[in-house]
Design a binder for these strands. Structure first.
Lengths: 138, 138
DNA sequence: TGCAATCCTTCCAGCTACAGGAAGGTTAAT
DNA sequence: ATTAACCTTCCTGTAGCTGGAAGGATTGCA
């Protein structure tokens, strides 16, 4: 069993956040020690890691709750589970594309900079251009 | 020139958020109409899109401000600009890996569901396993 | 020309998801 | 036995929006 500090380190979350998740019932400790310390097992630790990732990509705490339910709710028909999971996967794939674009833009900028001390790092060209913005009222 | 509603639609941000960004000086409108309406040009629109992406991946508003400065601050030596850009690119590449992992986990779950009505969608096996968690106090 | 619908404005209150810090109990090592 | 490094609860503060009220502007249509 991990105490909260160890669970935090192992999951990559701040201790405060782990405690917060326990308070709001997102990831509850398996038990409390005699002195009241929160104790986490491996499964709960996995959940914390999962939640950290999902939160980092814009899923709300409530959405994370739903995602965790996917793992646990044996009552729910698997058709519904699958539908929810596929929805989220779709969102994640969109996020991946957006992340690619962001990466591309910043790489472009970094390449355009020569990296010496002269202050002539050019403004990314696409910034000044008008191309491919959605036309309004055609 | 776009009015705020059009700028919002074109950038994919809520109107309220565009107004908020104007208030905090992150992306200011180029001008105001006679009646006080905010007016945005193409370059500002590009910035809004850029900020939407950066925010979606966990960069704070202040970090976005810094990223936008990369495009604009001609005073700053390009070495420093490049360093900052490369740092951010490194972070983005880490985010990409995490996003891959999240995608993988959810895909795994979705595949494990047969997708019919029977409530036997299995719990992701890795969830119960102990494998590859960091050992503490060795 | 009048009127309704749909924009826009400012301002203020409330929300989510934490983060900081105080006051105090617990544990492990010296 | 005491000191450091944990842990606890509780309470306040912050970032980044979000919703709504009150009112002005613009547009399309009868």
């Amino acid at each position: 069993m991990y105490m909260i500090g160890d669970a935090a380190k192992a999951s990559g979350l701040p201790t405060k956040t782990v405690r917060y998740y326990a308070d709001v019932g997102l990831v509850k400790p398996d038990a409390r020690s005699q002195s009241g310390y929160r104790l986490y097992g491996h499964a709960e630790l996995k959940k914390l890691i999962f939640v950290r990732r999902a939160r980092a990509f814009g899923f709300s705490v409530d959405e994370c709750r739903e995602l965790l339910d996917l793992y646990e709710d044996r009552e729910r028909p698997s058709r519904e589970v699958k539908k929810l999971a596929l929805q989220r996967i779709g969102e994640i794939e969109m996020k991946m594309e957006e992340l690619q674009l962001l990466h591309h833009e910043l790489s472009h900028l970094a390449e355009a900079c020569r990296g010496d001390d002269r202050p002539d790092c050019p403004i990314l060209s696409s910034f000044a251009d008008d191309e491919e913005l959605p036309g309004l009222r055609p």
